[in-house]
Computed example of a mutant assay.
Amino acid sequence: MKLKDLYSFLKRDLQQIEDQLAQSVSSEQTLINTAGLELLKAGGKRIRPVFVLLSAQFGTYDIHQIKKTAAALELIHMASLVHDDVVDDADMRRGRETVKAKYDSKVAMYTGDYIFASALKLMTDIEIPRAHQILAQGMKEMCLGEVEQIKEQYDTDQNVRKYFKRIKRKTALLIAMSCQLGAITSKADIPVQKLLYDFGYSVGMAFQITDDILDFTASEKQLGKPAGSDLKQGNITLPALYTIQRFPGFKEKLNLYYENGDETLLSDILKQIKRNGSIEFASAISDTYLNRAKAAASGLPETSARESLLKVADFIAGRKF
């Protein structure tokens, strides 16, 4: 089963969101317009809009309003990826050339800024002050997370607590906001909004940990980028942190790789991580967050939307690529 099969009943509403995204990234400036449309063609799971739509079903569901919140959150996600690719000097994403690689870093940065601004403009149609306060605070936190990632790049002395704080800001927060803002836009009850935020946060943590596992276990074809890319770029994730803490000499080996870039040494490092129990350890942590998400969802009204949320959560936290 594919992810899209789990929410096929949302197909018509998701198409409205796609149309809204295309309208929002369009520009009279040819270069930004072309880059924005290419990003849309690259696709993506559209997880955040799906969570907005499902969460909105716990209130008064009006697709003409909900699609604006959903599109705005996806635009913020898209913009953050464009900026990430500049920071990481990445040439490929989802098997396609990045905006940075196809044009240059300056074009990529301004394209990302334009998409961010488009998201904010779209949200002005949602006349709920609390929604704007949550979105603004969330974007501030996301920026802090990105700066933390830069600061902690290549730092083999960092601890697991810093890692969790970083992935909260980098990934979990936007998924949590997608659930929360979907509920707020549809004026769902406040206790329901809180449960959906908790659900989205835990799903987001499980999702990012799974992503970090796949960087070691999936193939280049599955990932759309070379396996081990995160570690290569100095982003030290949970499996590597587990190995550093439990296997003497590994930290020195990793530092040596960062000093000389020896690909043979990198291959040895990746093999060690895959075989030493770190993948199983990280998977267990991901499962813990997934169980927390299910616990939050158990407090929601028993509806088809709740069942769909749980199915999507199971899929994205347990996927193999």
Rank of each mutant, 00 (worst) to 15 (best):
E38N: 00
V25H: 02
D262H: 03
Q133M: 13
G200M: 11
I209G: 02
L214Y: 11
Y7D: 05
L174W: 06
H83L: 14
S304Q: 13
A297Y: 11
D104Y: 04
F116W: 02
R306A: 02
K41H: 13
I115A: 10
D88P: 02
Y258V: 10
Y7G: 02
L122M: 15
A183N: 13
S229F: 10
Q16D: 08
Q158W: 08
K311C: 05
F321P: 11
E97V: 03
A71R: 07
I273H: 00
R48L: 08
V192A: 02
L21G: 07
D91Q: 15
V52L: 11
R130V: 15
T34V: 04
L256R: 15
Q65G: 12
A206C: 15
H83M: 06
C179Q: 08
V25C: 07
L75A: 07
D113K: 03
A22P: 03
I126P: 00
I17C: 13
A79W: 02
F207Q: 01
K41Q: 13
R94S: 04
K225D: 00
P191N: 03
K102D: 14
D84T: 11
I150L: 09
I184T: 04
P248F: 09
H83G: 02
K221I: 12
S55R: 09
D211I: 04
T264V: 13
K4L: 10
L309D: 02
A176V: 01
L144C: 06
A71I: 03
A296R: 07
G36L: 03
V87E: 05
D19G: 03
T111S: 01
K102S: 04
P129K: 09
P248M: 13
E263T: 13
D314V: 12
Y61F: 05
A101E: 00
G59H: 09
D88V: 01
A56G: 09
L195W: 00
A71T: 09
K140N: 14
E307R: 14
P49M: 08
A297Q: 13
L54R: 11
D62V: 08
L309W: 08
Y201S: 08
F9D: 15
L14I: 02
T171N: 12
A117T: 10
L10E: 05
I115G: 00
T124L: 14
E127G: 07
A293D: 12
A119Y: 12
A284C: 06
A218P: 11
A70I: 06
H132L: 05
G43C: 13
E28M: 04
